[in-house]
Computed example of a mutant assay.
Amino acid sequence: MTITLNTDYDVALSTALLGYVGETNARPVSVEGMEIDGADRYVMTIDYGDGVQYEVDITGGQWTPTADILRSAQTVSCQICAKKLSGQEYILLKKSRIFRLRIGAAIGDTAIPSPVVAMDALDRIDAIGRQAHADMQTAVTAAETATTAAENAKKSATAAGLSADTATQAAERAETAQASAETSATQADTARQGAETARQQAVTAQNTAKISAAQASVSAQQTDADKIVTAGYAKTAKTNADSTAADRQAVQTLATQVTADKANVAENTAKVAEDRTAAETAAQTVQAVADSLPDDYVTAVGKIAENTAEISAVKLTDKELTRRVNALYDLGNGITHQFETD
């Protein structure tokens, strides 16, 4: 039989007969067109429909069914697969469509088992025998265990007589245990009462803590208010300090001005002295002129009077300047009003 695959791995069969039941190495099967890039192993899977599947190697392009493949007269489902070795296992590259082949019936319809099938059957029989032997060993062990248990039971019955003698002692210990239990119950009740007292104290402490927390909250609010007032006082103090600094600066400026005015007064005083000297010189000049002009006495007298008026004007200016400087100096010393007489 020849199985031909195209590029899509569709299958064409020269015949659908795979072989007859019981045949061994009688009908070679050739496979053509199965090669694809990357594949290094080709297999054909045969499914019998009862959960049994066989996978046969067709890498060489030819394979011959054996008796274990042709085990019964039926139609089987087949599929060709191309695989590639990756690491320690093969991965699938491509599969053909499923196609069906027929195993024909033989006379007697009894298949002759192949050596592989026979060896498999012998292995199964051997495994069954080994399991039966293991089960027998388990049964023997169980019997020995039962015998040992019976002997132990006999010994326990003997010991039961001795145990009866200690029953009274056990009763006494039970009474002692009962008394201890009653004592423990009393102690437990006392502990419960103590726990209740502790709970009440805890409630009282909790209420006290709540009151303290409320008082602390009020105190915190009052503290915030005090902080605001203190901040206002600090702001006012800073304003006053700034005002005082400004006043000091004004006084300093005024003192500087007074010093400058004093310098001007001194300068003016020197000028007045110079003018006085000049006036005296002029008076002397007038007198000399008067002495030198006896013929025009009236004119000389008028000239003298004019010069005298000029001298008086100079003296009046000196007095006015002195008065003004003194008034400015007194003002710098805080004197704002002063009465004077001519």
Results as ranks from 00 to 15, higher is better:
R173Y: 12
F339V: 07
A214M: 08
V21H: 00
L162F: 08
D330M: 11
T256L: 09
G51H: 06
H337T: 15
D295F: 04
D224E: 14
P115T: 08
A160D: 10
G194Y: 02
M44Y: 00
Y48N: 03
I80N: 03
P113F: 05
Y20P: 03
G60M: 07
G51M: 05
L93W: 00
R276K: 09
L293C: 04
R124G: 04
G129S: 08
K84D: 04
T285E: 01
A214Q: 13
A234L: 10
H133C: 02
Q287E: 12
G22D: 05
I211S: 10
A270Y: 00
K154N: 13
S292P: 03
N240Q: 12
T208Q: 15
T322P: 01
G194W: 01
L92G: 02
T7I: 12
Q206W: 10
E23A: 04
I80F: 03
D126N: 11
N326K: 13
T59V: 02
A273Q: 15
K319P: 02
V229L: 14
I228V: 11
A231N: 13
D47R: 00
N207Q: 12
S219Y: 07
L85Y: 00
A263S: 15
E196Y: 09
S184C: 07
L70R: 03
Q131V: 04
I98L: 05
V11M: 03
Q131G: 06
D247S: 10
T158M: 12
N207P: 02
R130H: 04
E32K: 14
S212M: 10
V325Q: 09
G161L: 08
L5I: 12
D291W: 02
N333A: 12
K210G: 06
R41E: 05
L101M: 15
A159W: 06
S114G: 09
A327I: 06
T281Q: 01
E175T: 14
Y20S: 14
R124W: 07
A282E: 00
E151S: 06
S14L: 10
L321D: 10
T341G: 13
T341H: 11
K84Y: 03
T190I: 15
Q200H: 06
E172I: 13
D109K: 03
S212I: 14
K95F: 02
V298K: 09
S156D: 10
E151Q: 11
T110V: 15
I112A: 10
V325H: 10
L254E: 07
G161F: 11
Q257F: 12
Q249H: 12
A300E: 06
R71K: 15
L17M: 07
V116Y: 14
R276E: 07
T281L: 03
